[in-house]
């Protein structure tokens, strides 16, 4: 019998908790209704901020991907001085830890290849032996070129340096801009939510006072305001996804232009980050307001 009673008690407690949860949701909806036009202001501001964040984040990810893909296609070409053995140089390069791939193209092969591509008159082969080197980390390319250029057996070194540098520069700029804008606009959103929740708390002061006196739990009193902040964050994130979809299709077209694949998981990562950002800023803004203005 005691076991049965325990189960009944537990069942009743769970039912009560479920009812309280739904009533808290009801109170949240009431709070949102009471905020009238402020809802529109907050949600549109959050949507604008989150879409800026999302677009910058998405672009930043794509630029990194683009740099990777294009960088992969770019190799360092080392031209060997006539009379020197390319194999000796390859042995030296192998000591370099950052090398991913290395290939010797003999002057004969290169000449043959060139002749298939261009209509060249019958002259002596002027090409040197070439070593194509692909590095694991593109950031080390400059160091590698500098070292290699000083070698006696090297005639010249070529790399599409400027192009790679520019793309990487754009990537860095986007990342820094994203951080600055997110901090500035995140602070603005936080403050808007904080003030709105403050207004809602002020408008319900009497109700809160009575609930406190009658023994309503802190959670029941505070939770609707926190849920309201989360609601704003969620709605803002939802609308921020629309420009992200447009940006994604633009990125897809751009990637096709360069014959590179689109970074598969980036869209999902960005959407999830925008959602997380929205909910986190919404919740934190309202928690801060509840802590400051709602003394239970």
């Amino acid at each position: 019998m005691p076991g049965l009673m325990d189960r009944e008690f537990l069942g009743a407690t769970i039912n009560t908790d479920i009812r309280i949860f739904f009533r808290v949701i009801g109170e949240t909806i009431k709070g949102i209704k009471r905020s009238h036009w402020m809802n529109l202001v907050i949600i549109s501001t959050m949507a604008a901020i989150l879409s800026i964040f999302g677009c910058l984040f998405r672009s930043g990810l794509f630029v990194s991907h683009f740099v990777d893909e294009v960088g992969n296609a770019i190799q360092v070409s080392v031209y060997v001085k006539p009379g020197h053995d390319a194999n000796n140089l390859v042995k030296k390069f192998s000591e370099y830890k950052n090398i991913e791939k290395i290939k010797i193209i003999t002057r004969e092969e290169a000449w043959k290849d060139l002749k298939t591509q261009m209509d060249i008159p019958e002259i002596n082969n002027p090409l040197p032996d070439t070593i194509r080197v692909k590095l694991k980390d593109k950031a080390e390319v400059k160091d590698f070129i500098k070292t290699v250029k000083n070698l006696n057996s090297v005639e010249d070194v070529q790399y599409a340096e400027q192009f790679a540098d520019k793309v990487m520069g754009v990537g860095h700029f986007i990342n820094i801009a994203a951080i600055v804008i997110v901090i500035a606009l995140g602070g603005l959103t936080f403050s808007i939510i904080n003030n709105t929740i403050h207004l809602v708390i002020e408008s319900r002061k009497k109700e809160i006072e009575i609930m406190r006196m009658m023994g309503v739990s802190d959670w029941y009193i505070k939770a609707p305001y926190i849920f309201q902040g989360i609601f704003y964050g969620f709605c803002g994130a939802f609308f921020a996804v629309i420009p992200l979809i447009a940006l994604n299709s633009y990125i897809k077209k751009f990637a096709e232009l360069f014959y590179i694949g689109i970074d598969a998981n980036s869209s999902q990562i960005v959407v999830l980050s925008v959602l997380f950002m929205g909910i986190a800023v919404g919740a934190l803004g309202s928690i801060f307001s509840v802590k400051k203005y709602l003394k239970v």
Partner: peptide, 23 residues
């Protein structure tokens, strides 16, 4: 009295026990 003017009498009396999770 501390009554909520935009709630009727029933809701004024009920809203606290509603918050306590009664059916």
């Amino acid at each position: 009295f501390k009554l909520l003017c935009d709630h009727n009498v029933f809701d004024n009396v009920a809203f606290v026990i509603r918050a306590l999770g009664m059916s």
